[in-house]
Design a protein around this nucleic acid. Sequence first.
DNA 1: TATTAGCACTCCATCGTAATGAGTGCTAAT
DNA 2: ATTAGCACTCATTACGATGGAGTGCTAATA
Lengths: 354, 354
Amino acid sequence: MDLDERKRKILQAIIRNYLETGEPVGSRTISKYTDLNLSSATIRNEMSDLEELGYIIQPHTSAGRIPSDKGYRLYVDQMMLEKEEQLNQATQEVKEMQRMLLDREDKMEAVLKQMARMLAANTNYATMISAPQVRGNKLKFIQLSRVDARQLLTTIVVEGNVIKNDMISVEQMLDDETLLKLNILLNTNLNGLPIEEINLAMIARLKQQAGIHAGIIAEVMDAVAAVIKDGEHVEIYTSGANNIFKYPELADNQRASELITTFEEKQLLSELVQDTLTDESGTGIQVYIGSETPVKTMKDCSVVTATYELEEGMKGTIGIIGPRRMDYDRVISTLKTLKSQLDTIYKKDDGRSG
Amino acid sequence: MDLDERKRKILQAIIRNYLETGEPVGSRTISKYTDLNLSSATIRNEMSDLEELGYIIQPHTSAGRIPSDKGYRLYVDQMMLEKEEQLNQATQEVKEMQRMLLDREDKMEAVLKQMARMLAANTNYATMISAPQVRGNKLKFIQLSRVDARQLLTTIVVEGNVIKNDMISVEQMLDDETLLKLNILLNTNLNGLPIEEINLAMIARLKQQAGIHAGIIAEVMDAVAAVIKDGEHVEIYTSGANNIFKYPELADNQRASELITTFEEKQLLSELVQDTLTDESGTGIQVYIGSETPVKTMKDCSVVTATYELEEGMKGTIGIIGPRRMDYDRVISTLKTLKSQLDTIYKKDDGRSG
DNA sequence: TATTAGCACTCCATCGTAATGAGTGCTAAT
DNA sequence: ATTAGCACTCATTACGATGGAGTGCTAATA
């Protein structure tokens, strides 16, 4: 099962070469490419073995070999370690991202979009970033205000500072006193409450207490329900989908169309996000090779993801989607740096290192 | 300049046929396709004339003819009218959209996204919808609330019910009285004010009156500024980008990549939105053929747009992007119906007919 | 005079046939 | 165990032949 040193070196050389060229690589190439000083014939024998072991594949007789998923897997699991440190210098682009995050405005959305864009431009792969998932579930603040004679505004804030507004139309103007009463009613009953504890019985009770204004309470509660629902919905930003056209193996109509659809219907990517958030391997970096990815339209791609963590325990995922012959070293290194930047910037207590 | 009846019929037949098949159409086909009972030789002569007049093009000698942009233009301007009524029956899909709009929730975003998706599925073209542009510019409501000891919440509502929230962190808790004072300060000065009348001098005055709480005022004013900025930013939703792969003339890597980028960087489409909003031809429907479109990456596409109008004079654009040989009849008819639905549903006073 | 039949010509698309060349597997020699 | 050498495979490319769709032109026709 375990490969001897020579086979490993040859496999590594094959993969490296293939990552660069995208063409099947032959024995003669390896014979020169490595420092093993072996003839092409010897390499051929070894390659034959490697193929039998399932690490490489021959697209057809009399073609060179290309790595199989198993081969790639071995490469990212073991062979890349030797290189890992080398690329760790923070590149200029990463610094720029850091700057962006530091003077981030209120709008996280804009920052994440821009980050996805930069990553895509930087790596030449497609990228996705999921907004940090809201874990907080306590109602922190709830208020009814009068905007004009016929319109009330509900403002709801949930732990984690997710804010939701809702306009409510009323037939006739509420006087200040009634408004105050309703606000007190809402606050005494709901403030500080975990949202899962809000049930039908409670809503019924509130409505009863509100008397003729039960309708307003109903609308407020609808808005609260909407907050909960919003929380489950993961916002995902993508960029650089057009990069897939740079890799012929992904650019045929069939595949391209599927991939573009996947990027457009971003919810298809939420499966991926879920997967990364559960399966923590410790480093926070995951590599999905070919059919390993949970999104089936990406079976011809490789996906590298990093999970980042912001204040208040909110987690998100950054993903890079490219061809199987992705520059794993570079991508992983970039994501590691980026992840550690994010973890650092927002950290409260950072146990393990980045 | 003006074509005689026979030439018109022939041109129409050529275009119809080309729209169906996507292949250059020859004289023999037309000879049979029309009810003119002319031999192919006669048709050839006429086609030769039509080419000289610039309505059709020969991709190469000994190929049939395809319509030029000028030809398409004539078709949509004049020849389609004869068909117009025919397709006006509201299809099932349009009805479904109407239903969606009627029980629309607060979230216009979701409705528009879904509408774009349905249109795309329905037409087999790519679609875009711009959210109605906010014209309202009066501050309707502004309020500071305490969420917890260190956090204040600003809520701002602008005419047209655009709502903006902003969290403000404070070093130490503000007592109720101070909060009330600040709220009165903000309201007396800002409520009902057109936002363009808010200038530096006024901000300075507010800050001065706020005394040691000038910082809070500054942050509130930043949030107000953000509302203004948000208003300028047009939200655009797209769907069905993958449909371009159904049309070989758009599906080559070069073009596809450009188009996908355009759909991804939606802001590139805002030019189109601007164009449609200014150039009102009366019907609210615009047709851009090939290079006529303001977005240069779409020079090989045709774009049909409809501007719709919601309550409070907010306008948006619906666009359908497909190949030059688009089914103009169907698309225009669909958009007309959809537009009239939208105009009707939200209408306050609808002068002209739909 | 307008239309049509007929014909030569053009040019794209398709197909089979080399020719090329990269790469392999195997065998025999080192 | 390694390597040189050789026959063999097969994708790719180039090339010419063929076929067919379609045109333009000319001469015949109504």
